[in-house]
Write a protein that binds this DNA or RNA. Structure first.
Lengths: 119, 119
DNA sequence: TGGTTAAACAACCAAATGGTTGATCAATGA
DNA sequence: TCATTGATCAACCATTTGGTTGTTTAACCA
């Protein structure tokens, strides 16, 4: 369930940057080179190259070799690991909210007081 | 679909920190105070308080008032927004991989091409 | 009223991050 | 062999971030 926390660390860290998320969005439409990826942004190619390094170390993208170009492409498996992590907690809480809803409903009839949940 | 990019910005940024992700994990089992949240960590309560501020500004948690305590609790809706963003691209790419798979299959007959994916 | 507890505020510091410019490496093609 | 193109490497700078200690606010309790 929680095989490698460092993996999640780097992956979330990588997605924390809006430029890198845009790169991910771009790559979802197919692989692209550093120059192509840098084009929509007002930053240098070197900066984009750094971003791609971050994404690569996070396992979110991979780079292949194709003549002088090094096309970058997405790694959906790692994205899947992220959703798995998030859903792990999201679903738990949503279920608790459903239970809470039921409690509040029955509580309202008897004159409810606020809940205290000290663990 | 993409209502507020700044929202995603702050949410991913908030989850980029391992301490904050642990706080999320803890809150998935019920609300907790700053002191309770700080306990498992080797950092001061002030530092945890700062982390909670970040999570709160990202909309991932909310703070209520209960006597002197300010219990923190999770906001699953925002987590859901994150999975929605990720899945948006994850699914696209996986579909492309399925197509690619078909291409490679037919390609193998005519003399395969390289597709090296080093981990 | 004074004491205690929970938490935030404020100022500060070290380390990391995102960006730049300039130089270098690798592959292609004349 | 040499010039070109794509991309990385290296050094550097400004800002942000995570952390600290110390001080204040807010609510309860006696």
């Amino acid at each position: 369930m929680n095989p490698d926390d460092g993996t999640l660390d780097s992956a979330f860290m990588a997605l924390a940057d809006p430029v890198r998320r845009r790169i991910i969005a771009r790559l979802s439409r197919g692989q692209a080179t550093v120059n192509e990826l840098a084009e929509p942004f007002a930053i240098t190619k070197q900066a984009v190259s750094k971003h791609i390094q971050v994404l690569e170390q996070a396992g979110l993208v991979t780079r292949s070799r194709e003549a002088q170009r090094r096309p970058v492409h997405l790694n959906p498996a790692r994205l899947e690991a992220l959703t798995a992590w998030i859903d792990q907690y999201r679903l738990v809480r949503e279920e608790q909210f459903r239970s809470l809803d039921a409690v509040l409903r029955s509580n309202a009839a008897t004159g409810g007081n606020h809940l205290k949940e000290s663990s």
